[in-house]
């Protein structure tokens, strides 16, 4: 049994349209798990159910063997960082951070000591007397994190905490979050719609779609072997086409082109897919994993060219680096390496 368990969670506001349907998720102690998905997939809702801000219609939520399904939000002892940071505008940084400790009726000296320590960890000591309005986005973000961490929560919940920061700060903050999370060994749930951000810091990723988890695995496995077409598309796969098993590792498309795939798959019918980056453009046909096409549209991406190529299988998108770009109308051969092509 995992440290955190969501079991058969259903959520619907009107009884017919389900926002979450039979959702299950297990998180081990000390893990950082991301909920990844497009807006409206139910990832924030799942986080809010974990936090206790929303009650599910059915299902149960267990942390460390304790059933918390009906425990109200203020008794759960989790730390949460909101997308808007949700700092108390009328309190100083110190009072913001001390808020949770005061609710736990701790004595003044203990509060002072604990707040001081967490402000040091988050590099905020010199801002203790400031109000949130007097601080930059990155600083506010750290206050929100400090406020959530100081209560030594069983779980840390992060709701798109980086989405309001600029690109550069986002990268340094996510490293910061990972560093603190590892140092404190705190089990963390992180909600995001940004694939790169999510892969960079997560131990495990749950890709969500339509109120359910489509795939739950390590970032590496999801990146290499997405299990469904939705997940594949979401993490950058393109060029989907139907194939049929010929024998062992060999597959055929409907036009008879042959494809070899490196790993074993038991299905006889499947959809093959490959990232635009992984397709090679070659001048000659090889009899395996290759297909003929004509360059239709070319766009310049900086370090490479993106081609839309017309083939028997329809349009295939390819990113290709070359000194001399192909022109519209050029006939080319596309090679899809057996270790890059996958079945979903």
């Amino acid at each position: 049994m995992g440290f955190v368990e969501l079991k058969n969670i259903d959520l619907s506001y009107d009884g017919s349209k389900y926002i979450l349907k039979d959702l299950n998720l297990t998180i081990e102690k000390g893990e950082l798990v991301s909920l990844l998905g497009p807006s409206g997939c139910g990832k924030t809702t799942t986080l809010r159910i974990i936090a206790g801000l929303i009650n599910p219609n059915s299902g149960s939520f267990i942390v460390d063997g304790e059933n918390l399904t009906n425990v109200p939000v203020h008794k759960r002892n989790f730390g949460m960082v909101f997308q808007s940071y949700a700092l108390f505008p009328h309190m100083t940084v110190f009072d913001n951070v001390a808020f949770g400790l005061k609710n736990r009726k701790m004595d003044k000296n203990t509060i002072k000591e604990k707040v001081g320590r967490i402000l040091e960890v988050t590099d905020l000591s010199q801002f203790a007397g400031r109000f949130p309005k007097q601080m930059s986005g990155g600083q506010r973000q750290r206050v929100a994190l400090a406020r959530a961490l100081v209560v030594e929560p069983k779980l840390l919940l992060l709701d798109e905490p980086l989405s309001n920061l600029d690109a550069k700060l986002r990268i340094s903050m996510r490293t910061e979050i990972k560093r603190i999370q590892q140092k404190l060994g705190i089990t963390t749930v992180f909600v995001t719609h940004d694939q790169e951000e999510c892969f960079s810091i997560s131990d495990k990723v749950a890709v969500m779609n339509n109120g359910d988890i489509e795939q739950y695995d390590t970032p590496e496995n999801i990146y290499k072997y997405p299990s469904t077409e939705f997940v594949a598309r979401f993490i950058g796969f393109d060029n989907f086409f139907n194939v049929e098993k010929a024998n062992y590792h060999n597959y055929k498309d409907i036009f008879g082109h042959q494809f070899v795939i490196d790993y074993e798959d038991s299905r006889t019918q499947a959809v093959a897919t490959i990232r635009p980056d992984d397709i090679q453009v070659v001048p000659e046909d090889s009899n395996m994993n290759s297909i003929k096409g004509i360059v239709d549209v070319r766009t310049f991406l900086g370090d490479s060219y993106q081609y839309e190529i017309k083939t028997e299988l329809g349009k295939i998108n390819v990113n290709h680096k070359s000194e001399k770009p192909y022109q519209q109308g050029d006939a080319v051969y596309l090679l899809m390496p057996s270790n890059k092509i996958i079945l979903v």
Binding site: H74, M80, F82, A86, L87, F88, H90, G100, N103, A148
Partner: peptide, 27 residues
């Protein structure tokens, strides 16, 4: 008013009535 401020107070162990007085009213 950003109601997530109130929710933040809840997650930090404050009851609903207390959060209303301590966090919503001042703002």
């Amino acid at each position: 008013f950003d109601f997530s401020i109130e929710e933040a107070a809840w997650t930090l162990g404050c009851t609903k009535t207390k959060s209303f007085v301590k966090v919503v009213l001042p703002n």
